[in-house]
Simulated scan of single mutants.
Amino acid sequence: MKLATWNVNSLNVRLGHVLDWLQANPVDALCLQELKLPDEKFPHEALLAAGYHACWAGQKTYNGVAILSRTPLLDVQRNIPGYEDPQQRIIAATLHAPDGKPVRVISAYCPNGQAVGSDKYAYKLDWFQALRGWLDAEIGRHPDLAILGDYNVAPADEDVHDPAAWAGGILVSDPERQAFRDLLGLGLRDTFRLFDQPPRTFSWWDYRQMGFRRNAGLRIDHILATRDLAERCQECGVDKTPRAWDKPSDHAPVVATFGAA
């Protein structure tokens, strides 16, 4: 089973990229973030024609998440239960792996936070706390669970192209990294770090100052999996290919492969 995540930074702009990538990389499920379109504009017919069922939580101009799956999506949950939030950042569903076993998949677009100490930063930390509380319950119900998405957190200095320049700033501050570690404390594993990886492997590069060409990036897109699922993970990596396409997203897909139970 292959699971992938990709912040597409506008599905309307990059639907062609998504379809092309899926044709070349027929994953079992792809989690998308930053759809930037309302529910009624979601291109479900085009995706179904490509062989993918979908569930989504859209929002005009901002945010929005989706899960694309080769098998029907069941028990769909939009947003964090009990957490009032007009921003569409969570969609969860159960799908069946090729071996028939159910897997709970969550697509998450975590808040950016804007700047350390800002109101948006406080919202980010509060949102992560709510996410952790809900995930704790979800993991109890679903032994095989993966939460994929743009976390807007680079967990360690090795995930930052220039740690000194970024030190203490947004995406790398101690409270943000602690929020990420708190998720791992639930028993989740960062599948990327289960394997030896090439140094300076990132998933996001700023459009400005030739960030991608200079590989001046951050690893902020992650696939976390429960212990049982992580033990079956065979590989995880970043596919930088679409970042070099014409008019790309500033993020690249992250893909993890899991063996049968």
Rank of each mutant, 00 (worst) to 15 (best):
P198F: 01
W6G: 02
L171I: 04
N79M: 11
D190H: 09
N63L: 05
W205L: 02
T201M: 11
R219A: 04
G113Y: 09
H53P: 02
A225G: 04
L30I: 10
V172D: 04
D196K: 15
G16D: 15
T201P: 03
L73N: 00
H53S: 14
P98T: 03
A54K: 00
D196T: 15
R89M: 12
Q209C: 11
A115M: 14
Q88T: 11
A154D: 02
D196S: 15
A130Y: 00
V238Q: 02
G140D: 15
Y123P: 02
N215R: 13
A179N: 03
E138C: 06
D144F: 13
K2N: 08
G58W: 06
S173G: 13
T201D: 12
D228E: 13
C236N: 04
A156K: 12
L74I: 05
Y207H: 08
E34A: 08
R213A: 15
Y62R: 15
V153N: 06
V254E: 07
G259W: 00
R214K: 15
P143A: 06
G64A: 06
Q88L: 11
R141Q: 11
K60D: 13
A179S: 13
H17C: 05
P163W: 01
D250M: 04
R189H: 12
W127F: 14
S203T: 05
T61Y: 02
W166S: 11
L35I: 12
L218M: 13
L135I: 00
Y151V: 04
L37S: 09
E231K: 14
I147W: 05
Q129M: 08
Y121I: 05
V255K: 13
L35R: 04
P43F: 06
D20S: 12
K2Q: 13
N7I: 07
R208G: 04
F42Q: 03
G113P: 14
F212K: 09
G168A: 09
A225P: 00
P111A: 11
T5M: 14
W21Q: 02
G211F: 07
D206G: 12
F128A: 09
R219F: 14
C31P: 00
P155T: 13
H44C: 05
I139F: 13
V76M: 11
L32G: 01
A29C: 12
C31W: 12
G237F: 15
D190F: 14
D85C: 09
P81T: 02
H251I: 03
T257H: 12
Q234P: 08
I91K: 00
L125H: 07
L15Y: 02
F42R: 02
V116S: 03
L183Q: 00
L183Y: 01
F195W: 10
Y123K: 06
L229F: 06
A24L: 04
G140L: 10
D182N: 15
L224P: 07
A29V: 10
Y109G: 08
N7V: 07
V255G: 12
Q88K: 15
E158V: 10
W204F: 12
F195I: 08
A165E: 10
R14V: 08
D190S: 08
K41V: 06
L135H: 03
R89N: 09
V153F: 10
L131H: 01
I147F: 08
L183H: 01
K36C: 10
F42N: 01
G140H: 15
L131Y: 05
T226P: 00
G211S: 10
S173F: 04
P86R: 09
D126W: 03
